[in-house]
Simulated scan of single mutants.
Amino acid sequence: MNTIDPSLYLTNQKTTREPNPTLDKDGFLKILMTQIQNQDPTEPMDSQAMIEQMTSLTSLEQMMNMSSSIEKLVQSQLISPVIQYSHMIGKEVTYQAYDQVTGESLGEKTSAVIAVSQNEGWAILELKNGEKIYADAALKVSTTGSEEDVTEE
């Protein structure tokens, strides 16, 4: 019969405890249960104080969840180039056109934006003349009666 060397087993065990800087509901309940188990029977814990602590913890947890949800929503709005450039639909853009075969400059063209899509995280403006350009290739954006310069991002 083979014996197991206990020194090998003990060396693989985690010997240090890493503290958690946040207190979640499970941690709070563990503390509460420990308080209840170790309370003095002649002076029991104040039930009103216990309820107030639980209410405070629940409110804090709900606020943290809401904050996390809002942060995720904001991040998703900032990431989507379709949403970021959707305001350009219906406006005219002026851009530098190039021959797709030779790469030769064809001068500036202007066309209305009919849709916005994305490709590998880049916003693509789909134009009324059938062409597609990257949003940062627009030199000018025009609406009826006004023009505004567009700076590259």
Rank of each mutant, 00 (worst) to 15 (best):
M1R: 11
M1F: 09
M1E: 13
I4F: 15
I4H: 14
I4M: 11
I4E: 15
I4N: 13
P6E: 02
P6I: 02
S7M: 05
L8D: 07
Q13M: 15
Q13R: 15
K14I: 10
K14L: 11
K14D: 04
K14W: 03
T16C: 02
E18V: 14
P19H: 11
T22W: 08
D24W: 05
D24N: 14
K25Y: 10
D26E: 09
K30T: 06
I31F: 09
I31H: 07
L32R: 08
Q35M: 13
Q37F: 08
Q39D: 09
D40F: 09
E43V: 08
P44L: 03
M45K: 12
M45T: 04
M45A: 13
D46Q: 06
S47G: 10
A49T: 07
A49M: 08
M50R: 09
Q53V: 03
Q53F: 06
M54N: 06
S56R: 13
T58R: 10
T58M: 13
T58H: 10
L60P: 05
M63K: 13
N65I: 14
S67P: 02
S68W: 08
S69R: 10
I70W: 14
E71Q: 13
E71N: 10
K72V: 01
L73W: 07
L73V: 04
L73T: 13
V74S: 08
V74E: 12
Q75P: 00
S76G: 06
S76N: 13
L78E: 15
L78M: 14
I79L: 12
P81L: 00
V82T: 08
I83F: 14
I83R: 09
Q84G: 03
Y85E: 13
M88C: 08
I89L: 05
K91W: 05
K91H: 12
K91L: 15
E92K: 09
T94N: 00
Q96T: 06
Q96H: 04
Y98L: 11
D99S: 03
D99P: 02
Q100V: 04
Q100M: 04
G103R: 04
S105L: 03
G107R: 06
E108P: 01
E108S: 05
E108C: 01
K109S: 03
T110M: 00
S111C: 02
A112E: 15
A112R: 15
A112F: 04
A115T: 02
V116M: 01
Q118Y: 05
Q118D: 13
N119R: 11
N119T: 09
E120G: 00
E120H: 04
G121T: 02
G121I: 02
W122D: 12
L125E: 01
G130E: 03
E131N: 00
K132I: 01
Y134G: 03
D136C: 07
A138P: 07
L139K: 10
L139F: 01
L139W: 02
L139Y: 01
V141H: 00
T143H: 04
T144E: 15
E147D: 14
E147K: 11
D149K: 12
D149N: 14
D149C: 05
V150K: 12
T151N: 14
T151L: 15
